[in-house]
Design a protein around this nucleic acid. Structure first.
Length: 222
DNA sequence: TGGATGATGGCCT
DNA sequence: GGCCATCATCCAA
């Protein structure tokens, strides 16, 4: 099923007949996640993040992402390929969930590339497209534009917690995954900027590894 | 075991 | 713009 809406054109959001079981036919496969991180970064824009929880199922279109590259990247938890209990999953092959906490919030990333190349894509914002009422309830607000326009916000709205750390996003048995509904994001509609909140990263502070969909109302900041 | 820190967000001025 | 809640994580000791 192709959602009959266009990003940035529709608002308020409404997808009354979206069928999750149909979307599940189009889960991104392992081969997607094994690709170079910057391919994953670019191609994850416009895909749909789904957390299946029965009547509390939520989904959102990915509109803002960042790359964190192990080894060289001083902004990464795996700078110098540092392996700790927290970062262990980054060293597995692509397709697993790397979820961590910062202050009181959870942040969701997915692991990319083959085993022992610890790199991830952080989902910084999604556009709510399913389960909007439960998102409002979890976030304690009515303002649709603020439900998921930040990495901590979207995890709260979609009930993504550390219990999902290490989950295989490519298994149909699991309840957290990303699907491709055929929505295309044109290259000219991708804005590339410095990443957010990594002032400590020295020469990696300003690398343009944050991608977002131009003019989308749900990005975390300009 | 304790201190420092944070890939944030909400509230304030 | 600033302030800070609040706790998992890491590392020095």
């Amino acid at each position: 099923m192709i959602l009959n809406h266009a990003i940035g054109v529709r608002f308020p959001v409404a997808v009354p007949h979206m069928d999750i079981s149909e979307l599940k036919q189009s889960i991104l496969p392992k081969t997607f996640y094994l690709q170079n991180t910057f391919i994953c970064l670019k191609d994850s824009l416009g895909k749909i993040l789904v957390h299946e929880e029965g009547k509390n199922t939520t989904a959102g279109r990915i509109v803002e992402v960042e790359a964190y590259i192990g080894g060289e990247d001083k902004g990464s938890h795996t700078y110098l390929n540092k392996k700790t209990p927290r970062t262990t999953i980054q060293f597995e092959e692509g397709g697993y969930a790397y979820i961590y906490t910062v202050h009181t919030h959870h942040l969701f990333t997915f692991v990319t590339q083959p085993k022992d190349i610890p790199s991830v894509v952080l989902i910084r914002a999604v556009e709510p497209i399913y389960g909007i009422e439960i998102m409002k309830e979890r976030r304690g607000m009515e303002d649709i534009k603020s439900l998921t326009n930040g990495p901590g916000k979207l995890c709260k709205a979609m009930n993504i917690t550390k219990e999902l750390y290490g989950q295989d996003l490519t298994s149909p048995d699991f309840k957290l995954y990303i699907v491709d509904d055929g929505f295309q994001v044109n290259d000219k509609d991708i804005v590339k900027t410095a990443r957010v909140g990594i002032d400590y990263a020295e020469e990696y502070k300003d690398v343009p590894w944050r991608y977002y969909i131009k003019d989308n109302p749900f990005i975390s900041r300009k």
